[in-house]
């Protein structure tokens, strides 16, 4: 049990490795776009972080080496559409690193999840680019073309299942007549689920947040669809659509910005899951993970304070 991890960098690396399965699934179904986005994001992250560390007169190599900037970049790159133009990733990652992390004092001092802050910023600023998703497998050449030549992505695009369901419902459709399933998204979610289980097994993350997060989603979605099964998405579809598993195991578990007490993690995760379903159902944006995470980040100090474990002899 003693010394589980040699360094914080090792934990970050574990998290990056664990993302591989989900990224692999995304690659299989949606092609080269995601690879390009990750490369772009990582290069941006390292550059911006180095510049800022230089300005702050901090040692560059050891801080870059901690892997947190790379992890932020990868998380953001998988969250944005794989056919988004190149500047989306660049702007988003820069914002995440500068305003999400460095301005607060660097790793460990930021109250908000940097990747989600970057994502929310992008979604609000560039809603069109941020909601145009790849519909099918994209070859390397196609990906280069659409990301760098800024050729219209319409030919390749398709709405996400969550988006589609939402639009249909608002147009008066009923659940029983809609396609709720998406094989591609289910596989991507499975990939992230497996990666997450690996992190759990390695004890990089603890079980409380993912478990509470998923129960929050299931219970809220169940209650809604129990009341009106024709207008609310069933729980099992919530689990396998959008960024649910990525959120549960990789984003909500960001240790810096999540609750840190065992009980607090349960509360944090559960409320997060609840908020996501509520935002997905009643909000204007198709997926609600980023906003839910940012909202819950604010509550962390309060949750932590009131959920301190019992101390010996007190």
């Amino acid at each position: 049990m003693a010394t589980k991890f040699d360094s914080t960098s090792q934990m970050m690396r574990q998290a990056i490795y664990a993302l591989a399965l989900g990224i692999g699934a995304a690659y299989i179904f949606f092609g080269w776009g995601i690879v390009l986005q990750i490369v772009l994001a990582v290069i941006t992250a390292i550059t911006v972080e180095s510049v800022f560390l230089k300005i702050r007169k901090m040692p560059i190599t050891s801080a870059i080496g901690d892997g947190s900037a790379v992890l932020t970049a990868v998380l953001l790159a998988i969250s944005i559409p794989s056919i988004a133009p190149w500047w989306v990733a660049v702007v988003g990652v820069s914002f995440a690193i500068i305003f999400g992390k460095q301005l607060y004092g660097g790793l460990g001092n930021n109250p908000f999840n940097p990747a989600m802050l970057g994502y929310a910023f992008l979604l609000i600023s560039y809603p069109l680019q941020m909601t145009t998703w790849a519909g099918d497998f994209i070859s390397f050449a196609q990906a280069l073309d659409v990301v760098f030549n800024l050729s219209p992505a319409d030919a390749l695009s398709g709405a996400t299942r969550l988006d589609e369901v939402k639009t249909q419902l608002s147009l008066g459709g009923v659940i029983s007549e809609l396609t709720l399933h998406s094989t591609a998204q289910a596989w991507v979610n499975m990939g992230f689920l497996l990666g997450g289980l690996y992190l759990l097994a390695r004890r990089v993350i603890f079980w409380q947040i993912p478990a509470a997060f998923l129960s929050g989603i299931v219970i809220t979605a169940f209650l809604l669809s129990f009341g009106d099964s024709e207008h609310y998405l069933p729980a099992q579809n919530h689990l396998m659509l959008g960024g649910t598993m990525l959120g549960a195991f990789f984003i909500a578990t960001d240790p810096v910005t999540a609750s840190t007490t065992p009980k607090g993690r349960l509360i944090y995760g559960f409320l997060l899951g609840m908020l996501i379903v509520i935002i997905r159902t009643f909000g204007n944006y198709p997926d609600g993970i980023a906003f839910a995470v940012l909202l819950m980040n604010i509550t962390v100090p309060l949750i932590d304070y009131y959920t301190q474990p019992k101390v010996f002899g007190k």
């Binding site: 589980k4 991890f5 914080t8 934990m11 947190s68 790793l107 240790p255 810096v256």
Partner: peptide, 12 residues
């Protein structure tokens, strides 16, 4: 090399 605390919770 001492790094920043990321509140990973291994300590508690």
């Amino acid at each position: 090399n001492i790094q920043e605390c990321i509140r990973c919770g291994q300590c508690n």
